[in-house]
Amino acid sequence: MKKCLVNIVFILVGLFCYSQTASVLPKSYSAGGVSVSQKGDWQGFDNPALLAVRERCGLSLVYENRFAMKELSTQQLSLSLPTPLINIGVAVSRFGYSSYNEKLAGISFARTFDELFSMGVQFNYYTVAFSRSLGSKGVVVPQIGLLSEVTPDFCLGLNVFNPMHQQLKYQEIVKDLPCLFTIGMQYRMAESFRWLLQFDKEMSSRLIVRSGFEYYPTKSIVVKLGGYGAPLTPTLGCGVMVGGFVFDVNFERHPVLGITSVGALRYNF
């Protein structure tokens, strides 16, 4: 019964979370889920160009719990390593439970050109374990990202996941991987206030518009408020910086399925 329920919820997740067709990609802890233009904050499988502007090594752990069901949770670990020539990042993610799970591992390379323009490429290996009897199957999925600092206060980010429409084929099973085009911007309206906007278009799904605001009452605290999709899914979160550690938490409430929470712990060396 429980597995049946989990499967139903899994299908519903697939239906409602348009741009998150690959559940293995954890949701962003940014306001409204806008992550493509978050300068200085690389989140594993988001825009790889964001890695280019990182100046320090960083380690990040993200845990997402969808609709308060541990079977629908996603865990992610990522490590960023800046070098004088090129910045390198490694990330792994896992979604699912013992009978069905998806894993994604990626290595990313990014570089800044002329301080105003950054570019990154990421090679991901996506595997699905269908069941003990069927075994697992994997495929390489590329990802490309750009980040433009159009003005000191305005950043434009772009990310394309799976540009060549890779599919996972195993025996009779053909699983479409999301071909996702994301474009977004970050506008610093004041020193302590930012507006974020993002458009997600997955090939076979409806367009999702995301937007959010970040408010920094002090330099070490950030409050995030946003929303996305139609019907609107509101998001609320905050972040605290203590020493080299940054702790972020974000909640969103789906009108039918309930609350999803995302927590992240990051450390910058």
Binding site: D114, L116, F117, L146, S148, V150, L158, I183, F199, L207
Partner: peptide, 18 residues
């Protein structure tokens, strides 16, 4: 359409149409 030229050797163009 947004056209951004970080320098004289590079031009980036982003377009959204609906």
């Amino acid at each position: 359409k947004l056209v951004f030229s970080p320098n004289e050797r590079c031009v980036l163009k982003s377009t959204i149409e609906t």
